[in-house]
């Protein structure tokens, strides 16, 4: 949520109904949306308008009001069955046409593998670079996402791109989009997946092609000259540790609270205890299910291969700093 606060956009940036259009397909989708919208406004006004008019015009004036015996009119009823039929055929055909464009991936698309797991998005680039929660893409080039889940069903959703596709275990699903403007766009998980569902978000980071190439080459993250503790704090958010671990002593998330954990004994599920030192923290990231803390489930994914050595060190330094000021 700190991420959201720092980078969230104001509601004023948006059109009233749909989010901003940041992909080549967004305008085509919105055309269907607004066609159905105005059609609905028309029929709603017609039906409710007539209803209100009749209620006022034909309100009961006396208990002895006499009314005409009008039972049916097959011509009229056929008329208002057939007119909607033509309209729904039109909406169906239009919606299907745009849907096919959403489904057919252009041949020159840049391919990125997406792995969904509780509760983070991992993106693997052709050169082996892996990022978590941040999908860097070049502007003006179609991007194909080949997606798979490691556990339950998730759904990859970027409102600004009008893209949504379920991500299923034991099966690949595909989505694509072509970003049209440089900037950051929210990724949500749209299929309910448990405790961290509402924090399983990320960003599509759209960059000019040359900046994108440099970004991938640098491993998808800019450390700058941050001191280890602050770099660790940044990584703690970027690598989505913050989704499952609280750091304020409340322990209200699905994994152990890390406030003051360093330098203290930790009780494991088998009843034994272990000292939470640097090596324990490192092992907890690389082989998280080897020593599970009592009262918690073995459900943390391994970060082996996803963190460079200096990043691991920075994270440990950050966790050490959490109890230090108390």
């Amino acid at each position: 949520m700190e991420i959201a606060a720092a980078r969230g956009r104001s509601i004023m940036d948006k059109t009233f109904f749909m989010p901003r259009q940041a992909s080549t397909m967004a305008a085509a989708v919105d055309d269907v949306y607004y066609f159905v919208y105005w059609l609905s406004v028309f029929f709603f006004a017609l039906i409710v308008g007539l209803m209100i008019f009749f209620v006022i015009r034909y309100r009961r004036r006396s208990p002895d009001d006499v009314t005409p015996k009008i039972t049916h009119s097959y011509a009229l009823e056929a008329f208002w069955s057939i007119i909607p039929l033509f309209l729904i055929i039109l909406i169906f055909a239009w919606g299907f046409k745009v849907y096919l464009q959403l489904r057919v991936v252009p041949a020159n698309a840049f391919e990125i593998h997406v792995t969904a797991l509780k509760w983070q998005w991992q993106f693997t680039y052709p050169d082996g670079t892996v990022t978590i929660g941040e999908l860097g893409v070049p502007v003006g080039r179609p991007v194909k996402l080949l997606m798979n889940s490691q556990d339950v069903i998730h759904s990859f959703y970027v409102p600004d791109m009008r893209v949504k596709q379920d991500v299923v275990p034991n099966r690949y699903t595909v989505a694509w989009f072509e970003a049209t403007e440089v900037g950051d766009h929210r990724i949500y998980c749209a299929e309910y997946c448990g405790d961290g569902h509402s924090q399983m978000y990320g960003w599509v980071k759209v960059m000019p092609p040359d900046v994108f190439n440099d970004w991938v080459a640098a491993g998808g993250i800019e450390a700058g000259n941050l001191p280890p503790v602050e770099y660790g704090k940044l990584l703690f958010e970027k690598k989505t540790c913050i989704v499952c671990h609280s750091v304020d002593g409340t322990g209200n998330k699905q994994c152990p609270d890390l406030l003051g954990v360093f330098g203290h004994e930790v009780t494991l599920t088998d009843g034994s205890t272990v000292m939470a030192d640097e090596n324990y923290l490192r092992r907890s990231m690389m082989e998280p299910n080897a020593d599970v803390v009592q009262g918690y489930r073995a459900e943390m994914p391994s970060f082996a291969g996803l963190l460079k050595d200096d990043q691991t060190t920075a994270l440990i330094e950050y966790i050490k700093s959490l109890g230090a000021s108390e």
């Binding site: 919208y37 046409k97 745009v98 893209v163």
Partner: peptide, 16 residues
Amino acid sequence: TGLFLGALATDIHLHD
């Protein structure tokens, strides 16, 4: 509003 959801192009965005 069911029409928005029956139409495929818009359902992709509005689903869930």
